[in-house]
């Protein structure tokens, strides 16, 4: 069958139709090359859609909100009914405190969990169960963490709608991010480092704390920063626990005016994204500009954190020589 087809081709090639067949072949090649180039262009444009979106988004925010961002009072005024006097004092302080709680709760817990899974865990069903849970938790929508916190932290543990509740909620949410990043950087440390330490008589914990954690610190830091950057802009879970939108006071400062060291943990609060949501939900355009101002503050904070983390990772990759 194939033989006859080949014969056929040869016949046409040798006959006077040969020239046109060759021409057709060439045209086909040219057409496919052109199609190839065309697709490369389409792919490039599609890729640029993301980049352009980022740029347009940023320009749009800046055009709407730059006036507020440049005002000093914007950072040191409480929210107000009059747009010209409104500021984000209570919300940026709230965000900073919530992030502090999140960091203190999530970083040690995440690193410890990762160290266990990577260095200690025996291969059994329990380890398998933990691994499956870490994977699945990363895919749970953030608002579900809010529902968990509303039921567990706010009402069962009675932490109230406080900074502590919000910090712990976001900590649970970013835990998978930190665990995955820490595991990856532990895994990239070659076995012979561990073997050398064991050979010198180090215990497993000594190996972890004196050798593995210092080597992995860059990767861990990257994971923690990316997790925190996600937490800083996260709105849904914090709204769900019932954070207030209008806060015209700061949490009590420790050891002042009779406040205890940890009273601020249980204070009502608001955070930057909620402040932005609140202003965005109002019909007056003047408040939308305020929202844009908060948006710039949030986006600059997250971009700086993410950018730093990405830079750190590339640097570590380049420096990595075992």
């Amino acid at each position: 069958m194939a033989q006859t087809a080949l014969d056929e081709q040869r016949k046409t090639a040798s006959s006077e139709g040969g020239k046109s067949a060759l021409l057709q072949l060439r045209q086909g090649i040219v057409r496919r090359r052109r199609w190839d180039l065309f697709f490369a262009a389409v792919g490039f444009v599609a890729t640029m859609v993301g980049v352009v979106t980022l740029v347009v988004l940023f320009i749009d925010l800046i055009l709407d909100g730059y006036e507020h961002v440049l005002r000093k009072e914007f950072y040191f005024n409480f929210p107000s009914r009059r747009p010209s006097e409104a500021g984000i004092y209570s919300s940026w302080v709230g965000t900073a405190l919530v992030m502090l709680v999140t960091f203190v709760a999530a970083a040690p817990l995440g690193v410890a969990a990762a160290v266990y899974l990577e260095e200690y865990a025996p291969k059994n069903w329990l380890t398998e169960l933990i691994e499956i849970n870490v994977t699945n938790l990363a895919a749970v929508p953030s608002i579900v963490y809010g529902l968990l916190a509303l039921g567990l932290f706010v009402y069962i543990l009675n932490f109230g709608q406080s900074i502590l509740t919000a910090g712990l909620t976001l900590a649970l949410m970013i835990l998978p991010v930190i665990i995955v990043a820490t595991r990856e950087s532990l895994r990239s440390i070659p076995v012979h480092i561990r073997e050398a330490a064991f050979a010198c008589g180090a215990t497993r914990w000594q190996v972890v704390k004196d050798h593995l954690l210092p080597y992995a610190s860059g990767g861990i830091l990257t994971g923690v920063i990316i997790g925190m950057a996600r937490a800083i802009g996260e709105t849904a879970p914090v709204i769900t626990i019932g954070a207030l939108t209008f806060i015209a006071f700061l949490p009590p400062i420790p050891f002042q005016n009779g406040a205890g060291a940890f009273e601020w943990l249980f204070s009502p609060f608001t955070v930057l994204p909620i402040q932005m949501f609140n202003w965005l939900s109002r019909p007056q355009p003047a408040f939308h500009d305020l929202a844009a101002g908060v948006g710039i503050v949030i986006i600059v904070a997250t971009l700086l954190m993410n950018g730093f983390a990405i830079w750190l990772r590339y640097r570590i990759r380049q420096k990595l020589t075992w």
């Binding site: 980049v51 980022l54 802009g233 996260e234 994204p273 965005l280 948006g295 949030i298 990405i310």
Partner: peptide, 14 residues
């Protein structure tokens, strides 16, 4: 693209 993934959703809402 990683930065784009990192933009908070509330900003996308705006």
């Amino acid at each position: 693209l990683e930065l784009l993934e990192g933009v908070p959703t509330i900003v996308y809402g705006y």
